[in-house]
Design a binder for these strands. Structure first.
Lengths: 95, 95
DNA sequence: ATAAACTGATTTATTTTATAAACCAAATTT
DNA sequence: AAATTTGGTTTATAAAATAAATCAGTTTAT
């Protein structure tokens, strides 16, 4: 694009952006919290968490809380930087 | 979504957003200009212009410049308002 | 103890969207 | 008069989002 900065496709997704945004304010959130905070369906959230994880934007730790499975997500340094870059790029669209 | 505002899916697209952004600064641009300003392929641009037009976000006027066809796009009031709302919604993701 | 319902997810299938490739009609260039 | 360029549209393919179905285990009620 001419004057427009490229928008990281991984972050240019409503749900993935919401997940990243949440994790930036908390540094740690589990699957259930993210599902409620974003209003997403569990299936969609599961898929998008995988994508962010595979890109190294978040880390995912699967364990148990008592007897129930619990998936904890955290943002990584790579993820933080990607988010900041995305916000910068966005500005070229929003005078 | 809980704390996150819904992002207008029509505007949450890199190319459509670039088209709208361009039209906001110019109030009028033709197909060729938009293609160069956005760096998009003609096919992609054609499709996205249709979508914005069908939503009433832009008006599209097909005429001739000399003997060559010329498609002129302009943003509508509806489009301007939708863009402003989109920017507002975005803020809920970008602390 | 067993069935029913709930939790915390993942997997699969469906729909939608984005992108690219192919094409078309007319004009221009060689 | 071929070949190329211009200004697009249409069609096909790839990628993404969403929803629906499934799964493993837990809790609740009978």
């Amino acid at each position: 694009m001419g004057e427009f900065a490229k928008l990281d496709p991984l972050l240019h997704s409503e749900l993935r952006l919401a997940v990243m945004s949440t994790l930036l304010t908390m540094e740690e959130a589990d699957f259930v919290y993210l599902r409620e905070a974003t209003g997403a369906t569990a299936g969609n959230l599961s898929v998008q968490i995988d994508k962010l994880s595979e890109a190294g934007y978040i880390s995912v730790e699967k364990g148990f809380a008592g007897k129930k499975p619990r998936t904890v997500c955290r943002i990584t340094e790579t993820g933080s930087r990607a988010f900041a870059a995305y916000v910068e790029a966005l500005k070229s669209y929003l005078h």
